[in-house]
Design a protein around this nucleic acid. Structure first.
Lengths: 198, 198
DNA sequence: GTTTTTATCACTGAAACTAGTGATTTTATA
DNA sequence: TATAAAATCACTAGTTTCAGTGATAAAAAC
């Protein structure tokens, strides 16, 4: 249904030749081998191989192929990641026909196209990052996060640190807030990737 | 109470001079500066700075100081870590007076002392590691683990992958088993550190 | 062509985590 | 010394994870 919508929009454009549709990331990879493909428009969430993976794959093995990402405006870390991985365009999933066409034309013109909303998100992201990068986690929070990474539960941490479970939970909550994560796992991942554990 | 027990055991030994007691890792570091210390007997779990941290610190900045670790026989990854970090001895927390004394003598004699139980654990660890290192995670499990790392819940993953939540949970369970982790966080950490996500 | 692995599904109960709100006490810092 | 940041604690309610058990079908390996 959604794919068909895009198909229609693209078929309206003169500069577009053949259009191939795929529902999975792996399918796209297959199509890349079969056909001479110049531009890919991909959703971020797909089964088998998600958009980020596909993006990574493309930029690694088919660097000449352009790619425009579509997504819900989920979290700012995703936006950051997509931009860093070198997407050529980034547009919200439910944008206007006009904007999508504009994005396609711009990208085919060898320029990047990021929707205003996305840019806004990115600025927020950068802003927040700076905000939190500077404030960073407090010593105690780092301590707790490290223990969380060592697979301790809040209860165990509270016993180890001689503080109340409630306090640990508060720290955890603040850690999630500061790192922009939804789960402890995400926070620990963030900590590893940003070298917090070194 | 526990410290006193150790104190008594050590005081019984002729080759032991002065004994200092500490309840926190940081305290040990302080003692190291104040006194001429030759051997440390440390529990793995301590407040402020845990045994592993202390061990790391010692082997980095005071490499001539011997260190014997005490621990419950928790998980095999801990054992592995302690041995890798270069502890001179490793004895279960509730061992006999005789064994502790033997450990101390051996270590003071410039040899390593690992309790039989610990060795057994280590063999298991190596064995399991090999077993799982080779088998590694299945493609599907890797996929699930990656999504887990992206902060998705089992329910979300099941929707994304078009499979039942139960299946996702089974995968998660097997992932924990194979990686030897207790929590998803631990498994993701393991994955990052062993380059599984690259 | 069996055996093993992989992927799939189900159910339960306990433990742990997440989210939201509110508040007090230290400890830094401007 | 005000002001701000850090650390502490509490309570509720809903969601998710974890652990244990058991099972089937398809795919891969030997």
């Amino acid at each position: 249904m959604f794919l068909e919508g895009i198909n229609t929009i693209l078929s309206d454009m003169e500069e577009i030749g053949e259009v191939h549709l795929a529902t999975e990331g792996k399918q796209v990879v297959r199509l890349l081998k079969q056909f001479e493909i110049g531009l890919i428009i991909s959703d971020i969430s797909m089964p088998k191989m998600d958009g980020i993976e596909l993006l990574t794959e493309i930029k690694k093995k088919h660097s000449h192929v352009k790619i425009i990402m579509l997504s819900m405006l989920d979290n700012h870390r995703t936006v950051h990641k997509v931009i860093q991985k070198g997407a050529d365009g980034f547009v919200p999933k439910f944008t206007s026909k006009e904007e999508l066409q504009k994005a396609v034309r711009t990208v085919l013109d060898d320029e990047q196209y990021f929707s205003e909303l996305i840019k806004q998100r990115y600025m927020e992201s950068v802003f927040e990052r700076k905000k939190y990068k500077n404030i960073e986690l407090s010593p105690r929070e780092k301590e707790v996060l490290k223990l969380l990474g060592d697979e301790l539960t809040s209860k165990e941490i509270s016993e180890k640190l001689f503080i109340s479970v409630n306090t640990v939970e508060t720290h955890r909550k603040n850690i999630l807030l500061k790192t922009g994560s939804k789960t402890t796992t995400g926070a620990v991942k963030y900590a590893i990737e940003s070298g917090l554990f070194d």
